[in-house]
Design a protein around this nucleic acid. Sequence first.
DNA 1: AGAATAGTGTCTGTAAGACATTATTGA
DNA 2: TCAATAATGTCTTACAGACACTATTCT
Lengths: 239, 239
Amino acid sequence: MSLDAYKKASHTADIVVLSYETVETNDIKKSDIQRLKVLLIKRKDEPFKDMWSLPGGFVDYDKTLEEAARNKLKLKTGMDDVYIEQLYTYGDNLHRDPRGRVISTAYIALVNMNKISNLAPDTAWFTISTLRSKSGKVTDIKIFDENIAEVELAFDHSKILLDALERLRGKIMYTDIVLNMLPETFTIREAQNVYELIYGKAIPTFRRLISSKIEPTGVKVGGFGYRPSELYKRSNTEE
Amino acid sequence: MSLDAYKKASHTADIVVLSYETVETNDIKKSDIQRLKVLLIKRKDEPFKDMWSLPGGFVDYDKTLEEAARNKLKLKTGMDDVYIEQLYTYGDNLHRDPRGRVISTAYIALVNMNKISNLAPDTAWFTISTLRSKSGKVTDIKIFDENIAEVELAFDHSKILLDALERLRGKIMYTDIVLNMLPETFTIREAQNVYELIYGKAIPTFRRLISSKIEPTGVKVGGFGYRPSELYKRSNTEE
DNA sequence: AGAATAGTGTCTGTAAGACATTATTGA
DNA sequence: TCAATAATGTCTTACAGACACTATTCT
């Protein structure tokens, strides 16, 4: 049987690029606040023209799925060597795309947005606001632009983003992949804030949890009217 | 941009159908032993003609991915309403299939093989033998037919099967999906044997682990020269 | 001194592992 | 009574949560 004997679906690779942003508080005595961010692209063409969507595109016949995701990310952010993992393949809605049958494999990329020097002009970071159940489970999300105006995502990308956050939440306590979002050196407080953004609730013994995965650099940051904190880095001791 | 402006990959859905078989021991005083089983199909056509492979097939333009998997399973086993979950999408090897570019989404199905009355003639159950690290992690697998002769699988299906076992192992301690492999009623011993087959090592407090997920039926099975055991069933108390 | 956060130590309850003890049956 | 497994109970240890306490800095 020939591979061309039947009508084929199209296949795309989409990437949920997640990072966080630090917002300085008005009161200099109060420590900073973090916000979850997602990278979106403004669509140039129909369908969903001018709406914001996850970066992604059709998978070339001679490109791997992960290549397709990585190439798009490189193109829009200039980033190489990024942490990426496959999330899920969305192929159960025949009408995700009004143009025809499209199956999409979604990836999660975790990056530090401050490492990006030249973002593509059609690309921007948006703030993710989550609604949670008592357990921390993500029940709904809202996306806001820099003017705190709510933004609707194209296709089913809102669902994909929600799934990505749930996947991360499920893995955060037994992996250290979230550290890919942090800069080379960071304080434990900063790491804890990011962890709790994703986990959805307080992590009381965070210091104990993270201590085996990081090591002190000997450098301290201070100057805020309270005790300076040690800067740590990821320890690359593969277990 | 038209969806037909580029050369498309083909897309298949493959299913790792897992079950277990009970083998009576010679000594009637010894309790039974279980073996992990996987459902395979003998390929009728090239490539890999006459080799055994995971059930699967090309995804029709107007069928969902999960439908494609379920339909194939129904066709070969007659089974409906089976537990199924998406495993992973294999799209990073451009030459998985010598005929051309094929992306495959693999599903895991957990069934009780004794519920199947009429298996398709090209279909059979094979025994899975696993090699494990100290932690229980699956490092390698071998497949054997009913004559205990080793069988090689077509394509990269051996890797897919390994991934499926690892996925199950990772979820077994905090979900009860493995109970889908057991009959309507079962003893705790039988459930424990199946759990340990997948987990790869002993689960010392299994009774405590499982007790919240099952309930006694009041029926006992005996007649082997030792204390009869209670038959349990899944309790459908959705938490 | 006071405010704020960094960092360490301690207490406690829960859960997991190890293992002992009792129960039940057929030969 | 013995062999084998079922089922329950007990003891101990590891770990997570709560929280107290000390350390450090700037105003």
